[in-house]
Design a protein around this nucleic acid. Structure first.
Length: 415
RNA sequence: GUGAGCGUAGCUCAACGGCAGAGCACUGGACUGUGGCUCCAGGAGUUGGGGGUUCGAGUCCCCUCGCUCACCCCA
């Protein structure tokens, strides 16, 4: 029986791996510009970390975690998202006592046990950033700008930014109560799913895709109309700053993030080229998270970008240019010479490949062409006898005879 | 977890229930010291797996596994 990769996972081979790496690198550049530092946390954590932060009644915790019990009895989970681990590391390493604000970023695999479909995998990759410390609305706006800028450098355009405010620990309970009452009065008309949500997590209902429910919810109480004075002020300021950054957005009162730790600002960046899973980047503010994890009461804002989704819509070109050299050996007895040539080219920093099969000249030439080398260095009877190499430029087809001791310089210079 | 569609060569796909094929890719050659273009040749398959109907199943039926899309949810 063949062993196959497990459901919902992917192999990234050659160009695809390069492409993912390119996206990581582009993001790094921008994150550095904004003053962010990388944090690498373990891919597994105590399951309780996610139960407590993401929320017991969320889908992620209820049915999407890869978790397993250790012999010691503790339950470990493969991280389903990146914010909680970063927050845990922040608290555990007391970063708040080292600096007033922390700007942290992470990139790497996340795991959710969901049914795979387009743009949705069980192991997927995120680039995320967390700004921990500032409470000011300017921070929210800057984080949103950063999220948009990452997408831009990754070759993603025509995005749509949607924002909402989900209130704070003071005004949200009042709103949820109000919403639950509303759902109660419509219990006969809404779908079964929503009836269940009414009790467990009423804000979820607003996300319902069924036309019937949607129609009813158009008249549902909206978070934005039920914010406390402070939250409303904060939300308005976020919008003011976004405008001053010339960032276009729409307020979507139906955005309810699937993680419980969010407070106030919630946002999603949508791209229509993605199919049903149309969020390419999303995030929000989490003013209670650090405190909940046993740290001081310090607010934060952050977001995460889906790398596979970016790859699907990115316009960055993925073709690789001709580069380096190939060594073509006419006769087996010249192999030793070829080996030392290959070695010296490589130690001079020049990409160099050789066709190990030493077939006909034609077949070697064809293979080296497919390897995308710029130059083919031919090593044959004549060359060995007279002390030069024949070098063919595969771009122009031009061919020259180069003395042995000038070969490195020759293949290095032309671009 | 629910629904739908699809599983045939490495890839993309053909084959009225009647000899398993084509294109691309790969390998070699035409051009024995020259890549791409063209032409010729070659290797390649338990038709996802199991059962059933039939003289005969890639094709029809059942089961199973996998993939894809959608619901759900989210990056």
């Amino acid at each position: 029986m063949k062993v196959k990769r497990i459901r919902g996972t992917r192999d990234f081979i050659a160009e695809e791996a390069d492409f993912m790496r390119l996206i990581y690198n582009k993001c790094r550049e921008v994150l550095n510009l904004y003053g962010y530092c990388e944090v690498i946390t373990p891919v597994m954590e105590d399951q309780n970390l996610f139960v407590r932060t993401v929320g017991e009644t969320t889908d992620i915790v209820e049915k999407e975690m890869f978790s397993f019990k250790l012999k010691s009895g503790e339950t470990v989970a493969l991280r389903p998202e990146g914010t909680a681990p970063v927050a845990r590391a922040y608290v555990e390493n007391s970063l708040y006592s080292l600096e007033p604000y922390s700007r942290l970023y992470y990139m790497g695999p996340m795991f959710r046990y969901e049914r795979p479909q387009r743009g949705r995998y069980r192991q997927f990759h995120q680039v995320g950033a967390e700004l921990i410390g500032p409470e000011d609305a300017y921070a929210d706006a800057e984080v949103i700008k950063l999220a948009l800028e990452l997408l831009e450098v990754c070759g993603v355009d025509k995005c749509e930014l949607q924002i909402n405010s989900v209130g704070c620990k003071n005004c949200r309970p009042l709103y949820v109560h109000k919403l639950r009452e509303f759902l109660e009065t419509h219990a006969q008309e809404i779908c079964e799913e929503c009836v269940r949500r009414k009790d467990r997590n009423p804000m979820r209902a607003l996300d319902c895709k069924k036309d019937r429910c949607r129609q009813i919810y158009e008249n549902a109480p909206r978070t934005v109309d039920n914010l406390c004075h402070e939250c409303l002020g904060h939300f308005e300021e976020v919008q003011k700053y976004l405008k001053s950054f010339h960032i276009k957005f729409t307020v979507n009162p139906m955005i309810v993030r699937g993680l419980d730790y969010y407070t106030r600002t919630a946002f999603e960046i949508i791209h229509t080229g993605l199919g049903a899973q149309n969020a390419v980047s999303a995030g929000g503010r989490y003013d209670g998270l650090i405190g909940d994890l046993g740290g001081p009461s310090i607010p934060g804002v952050g977001f995460a970008m889906g790398v596979e989704r970016v790859m699907e819509i990115s316009s960055l070109l993925k073709e690789k240019a001709r580069d380096g050299t190939g060594v073509l050996v006419m006769e087996k007895r010249f192999v030793e010479h070829a080996v030392s040539l290959v070695n010296s080219l490589r130690s001079a920093g020049i990409r160099c490949v050789i066709d190990y099969r030493f077939g006909s000249m034609k077949s070697q030439m064809r293979r080296l062409d497919k390897e995308n080398v710029r130059y083919v260095v031919i090593l044959g009877e004549k060359e060995m006898a007279e002390g030069f190499y024949t070098v063919k430029d595969l771009l122009s087809g031009e061919q020259r005879e180069i003395p042995h001791n000038e070969i490195t310089e020759y293949v290095r210079r032309k671009k």
